[in-house]
Design a protein around this nucleic acid. Sequence first.
DNA 1: AACTTTACCTGGCGGC
DNA 2: TGCCGCCAGGTAAAGT
Length: 279
Amino acid sequence: MPELPEVETTRRKIEPLLLGRTILEVAHDAPHKYRNTHLAQGRRVTGLSRRGKYLLLHLAEQSAAQDEPHNLELLVHLGMTGGFRLESGKHTRVTFKTDAGELYFDDARRFGKVAVVPRGDYAGHPTLAAMGPEPLSEDFREDDFVRLAADCGPVKPWLLSQKPVSGVGNIYADESLWAAQIHPAQTRLTADEAGRLYRAVREVMGRAVEAGGSSLGDGVGNYRQHDGAPGEFQHQHHAYGRGGQPCDRCGTTIEKIVLGQRGTHFCPQCQPLRPVGAA
DNA sequence: AACTTTACCTGGCGGC
DNA sequence: TGCCGCCAGGTAAAGT
C-alpha cells in the first residue's frame, strides 16, 4: 500500500507530466470522494510537493506572475490501492485532462481521496493538519522523538498515527520496529529504544525511497508506478509479509499477529516485549 | 476532550 | 467450476 516512499516516488514520476501544464478538466463521477475538483479547471500546475502520504499539486491562476505563490492546492491521497496511470482501465476513477494529454487516477478499492483546497487550508483533513515532521527532513529531531516516545502507548499504533513522524504506514512500521529490535506493542520507550527507532525510521524510509518503494505480489493492492514499473524495496523486507519465515537476523520464525486492527509482523526473539518498568 | 471502535470499499483468494 | 465469505488497511466519522 502506498506509504511515504511510494508517494514520493509517484511525485517524482508524475512531476514531468504535470509541471507547467494547464488543467482543462478533472473528470469523475464521485463528488463526495473527489471534492471541489472543478476549481482546478483552467489553473496551471506550478509545483508538486508531498506531505506524509499526501500529494499536493500547486495550482496558480493563468494570469499569476512567476513569483506569485499558488493560491489553491489539489490534494491526493492514494489510499490503499490508488495510483496514476498513463492509460485508463477498469479501475480508473479520475481523469486529469491537461493541455498536454491525460493522466488517470486508478483506485480499485476506492480508498483514495482528491480535494481542491485553498493553499494550506487543511481544516477538512485533520490528519494532514496535525501531521508530524517529515522523517527525512531536519525537522525530525531525535530529542523531540525520544521525549514523545517516553509516554507513547503501544508503539506501532503510535507510529501509524502520523503525529510523531509522518508517512509511516503498516509496512514501514513493521520494518522499522524490526530494525530497531522493538516489540510492536511496547509502551513507554526508553531513550535508548526511542533513539534506535528514530534511526531505524530514517534508515528504512531513506532506503525505501531510493528503491522506489515496495511492490507486493500481483494482486489488486500491488503498488505500481504510472508506467507500470514496480518498486524494489520489497526485496529488502525483513518482517512485513514474512510471517512463518525465519528471521534474517536470528532464524526464529517471524510471527504475525493483529495489533490495533492491523496485521503486524515481528520476530519474537529479537523484538521481545519488555515488561513495563524494566529498563 | 481524548481515546477507541466502526465504516468505507472491492478484488483476490481459499474453501467447498 | 462457481459461488461464498473473508481479508487487506489509511483515514475519518461515530461512539464512549
